[in-house]
Amino acid sequence: MDASQWLHKQPQGLYCEPADCYIDPLHPVEHALITHAHADHAIGGHQSVTATASTLAIMQTRYGEDMAGSTQAVNYREQITLGSPNDPVTCVFYPAGHILGSAQILLCYRGTRVVISGDYKRQSDPTCLPFKPVPCDVFITEATFALPVFKHPSIEQEMAKLLDSLAVFPERCHLVGVYALGKCQRVILALRAIGYTSPIYLHGAQRKLCDLYERQGIELGELIDVAEVSDKQSLAGNIVLAPPSALSDRWSRTLPNVRRAMASGWMQIRARAKQRQVELPLVVSDHCDWQALLDTIEEVNPNEVWITHGREDALLHALTQQGRTAQALSMVGYESDTQD
C-alpha cells in the first residue's frame, strides 16, 4: 500500500494513521514515537512516548520525571506492534549514529516498509551505536548539510586544531561552543582519544547531561564546573565547554582572554563563524555531509526518498538526476543552528 496513504505530514509532525501516532511531534500529542532527544525532535508533555531507554532517560533529565503521561522503552531491533491487532503497524528502532539513544524508526504496514531516519551520521562516534542501513520502500531523510560544499573532516583533525591553538595561545582561555547534548560528550571523548588528559571545564548547562552519559557507561575523564573554580585566571590555556549561546554573553567575560571556538558543521562556512564572532571554527557535525547522504541513500537503495528538512532542493535535484523517485516534505521546525 502506497506509504503516502497512511503516513503524512501534519502541522504537529509526521503522522502514522493506522497506528494513530506521531513521529517527533513538535506539539504535545496522544502518542509519540521519538527518534532522538534533541529539543527540536523531543518535547515534553505527550501523553505517551515510545523511544529507546537512553532517549527516555535524556528526556527525563531535561524535562523531569513526569515529562510524559507514560513511557515505553524499546530496545534496538526489538519489534513492537502498534494500532489495531487485526491490521497492525509493526515498528522497529535501529541505531542512527547521531547521538546517544538515537534511532531510525522502521514502520511496516500492509507490506510497505518506511524508515524514518531522524537525524543520522556515518562518521564514527563512540557515544552511540553506528547507523544501520535498513532495507525499505520509503527512506525518509534529513538534508541539513545537503549541499556539495559540505565536506565534514574527521573530528580528530578538528580537535588537533584545538590543541594546536592551545599550544600557540597558552595565555588564552579556549571557550568552545558545543551543544549540551551529544556534541559536548563527543568532543570530550575525541579530545581524550588524541591524548588530552587535562581536566576539561564545563559551563553549568553542560553538567547534567555529561553526568547522565557517565551513568550510561561513557567515561569522559576529569570534568570541572567553571562555577567551582575560584581563580578564573587559572583557566588560561584550558578548555571550557559551554552552550553556543554562552559564547559571547556576560558569563564569558569572567574568563581570562577568551579565544572563542565553536564545534558545528556550520563552521565550515566562513560567514557563519564570523556571525558568531568565532575565532577558531571547528567543523564537527553529528549529521551526514553531502557525500555521506548520497552514499547512504545508495546503500539503503529505497524505491522512494522523502526529504524532511534542510537543504532539500539540492538533495532532491541530485536524486532526481540519478533517476530516483524523491520528494521534499519541507517540514519546518526541525533545524536549529546551534546543535548541528
Partner: peptide, 24 residues
Amino acid sequence: RVDPDLFAMSYDYVGEVSETVAHL
C-alpha cells in the same frame, strides 16, 4: 566540474563565489 544547479544552490547558500569554489 560540477552540476550547474548544485553550483547555483551552493553559491546561494555560501554567498560568495571564491568560498563556494574553494569547497566544491
